[in-house]
Amino acid sequence: MVELTVVLADDAVLVREALAGLLARNGFHVVGQAGDADELHAAVDEHKPDVVVVDVRMPPEHRLEGMRAAVEIRERHPATGVLVLSQHVESHYLPALLGGDPSGVGYLLKERVASAEAFIDAVREVAQGGCVVDQQVVAQLMRTRRRDDPVDTLSDREREILSLMAQGRSNQAICTQLVLTKKTVESHVRNIFTRLDLLPEPDDNRRVRAVLTYLRPWSEQAYRAGLPEETP
């Protein structure tokens, strides 16, 4: 298996070292570490890693520096996957992060690192061009209710599958996780797209975006607003 290269960015040295150790032991090559956005950009420019793992909060303001850096890296280095670790469950920044093409991108709550397997899987997924959205973030989106919400018309099984779709799981992965036949899953997925009035998307990543777009709780305008430009 090809060793994937990683650049880590977190201003907490302890966290960074611990993550580096975890990734190294799981077959990643940690080529660079950064304590702030400038160091991160320099390391990415130098190493062109397969994936970047970046904390949302970094110096100097400890607000959204990591998120802003992640969006920039996705623009400047499309080949590099970006996994954002966040302390916040808010899905507000997802649209800006996912952008037009949700491939090689991920948004995980920071405590996911405590579960090594899930974290390593997520890093690998993003490094290989996949899309990962934290299940809790998706769960919160699924909780969102509107009047006459078509999600209400879905069965429990379909809602479960919708949630996994939003997290970036492929049909195959859903089959495995829910112990269902591929045919059953495909039938559910078709049904979900019909009910929600979405065009079927063959590609997993576009599927994520479609689902997330549907689940968005905010106005289109607010959705597009994305990241604030200024540092308040």
Partner: peptide, 18 residues
């Protein structure tokens, strides 16, 4: 944190989401 970072609109939207 969202309120301080992105303002009232997004923060209220998030409240609605939850």
């Amino acid at each position: 944190a969202l309120l301080a970072e992105s303002g009232l609109g997004p923060a209220i939207a998030e409240l609605a989401t939850r």
